[in-house]
Design a protein around this nucleic acid. Structure first.
Lengths: 218, 218
DNA sequence: GTAATAACTTAGATTAATCTAACAAATAAA
DNA sequence: TTTATTTGTTAGATTAATCTAAGTTATTAC
């Protein structure tokens, strides 16, 4: 359908515009590590194909068609991550790079098989929602750990900004999805938190970390 | 390392030159569905990279380096086919197309994991040997069914020229690897054979089919 | 052994995706 | 509000992979 390259732009646009619904060429350029003039001409091309709405000096917006296409690529990415973890035994910090490649495969049966083998999962190994077959995706309304208070007990539901380093950091501390955390103390001046959980009665997490952990109340 | 395109040329060269050790540009052109001038310039490029030996109006030969690279791609292809059949439940007629894409992924860990999960298989689902980690591959010396005689009992060991149609033909007749066949009759004038096996006491196979089935004596 | 055919090569054009250099517009700072 | 900075655009070049058209070399057929 679309080229490998176009798919990567669509994905970047989808992720970057998630909050505001629009992105600047500059952001896309930085995200993909591609120079602005290249982004510019690609946006013209995607606009031709009715995947984005784009006018000079105005922000870029995905069309409905563009959102759908992007959602379907992200679906393939997240299904793949789930497959790599659940069926192949990879760690959650290892799967992103592989999924970046597999997401571009053109083979509906392959992804349908994955989906079926996994029992039609709704989330990926990091707790991010897997878009449905129409490309639509919805985040469950989790709270950030950073917005919780001392005394709260919560369950780790998702991780955002999942770089390999961050995931390894969590691995080292035995922090995984589903883990029940008791918030023991919140440091006012820097927002760091002391939490306790099964394997570790006292762990201090920086504000930056707490901002990246999404939790459910228990 | 090499581009997707280069990899496809290497694979084609490997397969086409398997018997004689050399190929003509014309054969490559037909195999890949690419016009001769394109093949010509790609051969110059691969010669630059020391992957092939090529001089005008002479046949093309892979260098040792070229054979190794090609072998490693075929390794990835066949490991993938095995994975798709054994771990994901695909039929042997469905896997080629998917493997054509996955073989180009750049992720050693991914293929190592596959290999391990499969128990380091030596053959793919069609009985073709999987090259080792150095790209080397050896065919076990099977016999063609067509070279057997009435009264022989053999075991189906591999299938060659495995088009989807042919594999579906075999599926319909319950012919699968490992199956024990008794040769009941060989028709002299057209080389067709009547064979019997568990599910089917009498099946007539054309000479063309018998040429594509490799067997071991039992 | 020449002529016809097939195979091969060269030359030059095209498309996709990228870049740099230079210019234009919008935003931020003074 | 003028200037400086950042952001965005245009123009033109580059590389990889392809093509068509035209010419060249081998091979096959007579």
């Amino acid at each position: 359908m679309h080229s490998y390259t176009e798919e990567n732009y669509l994905k970047a646009l989808f992720n970057l515009s998630a909050e505001k619904g629009e992105v600047s060429p500059n952001e896309v350029s930085k995200q993909l590590g591609i120079k602005m003039p290249t982004v510019n001409s690609m946006m013209k091309k995607l606009a031709e194909k009715k995947l984005v709405i784009y006018e000079s000096y105005k922000p870029i917006r995905l069309t409905e068609k563009g959102k759908k296409e992007a959602g379907l690529i992200i679906r393939k990415h997240r299904l793949t991550e789930m497959f790599l973890v659940q069926q192949m035994g990879f760690g959650w910090e290892e799967v992103h790079e592989i999924a970046e490649q597999i997401e571009h495969l053109q083979s509906p049966v392959f992804f349908e098989k994955m989906d079926a083998l996994l029992g039609y999962p709704k989330i990926d190994p990091h707790g991010s929602p897997i878009p449905d077959k129409t490309g639509k995706m919805e985040w469950i309304k989790y709270e950030k750990l950073s917005s919780c208070k001392a005394g709260d007990t919560v369950k780790l539901a998702a991780v955002i900004h999942t770089t390999d380093d961050f995931l390894k950091f969590l691995n080292q501390r035995g922090l995984q999805l589903g883990l029940k955390l008791k918030i023991k103390r919140v440091e006012k001046f820097d927002g760091s938190m002391e939490v306790g959980y099964t394997k570790n009665p006292s762990e201090v997490l920086s504000h930056t970390v707490c901002e990246r952990l999404l939790v459910e109340r228990v």
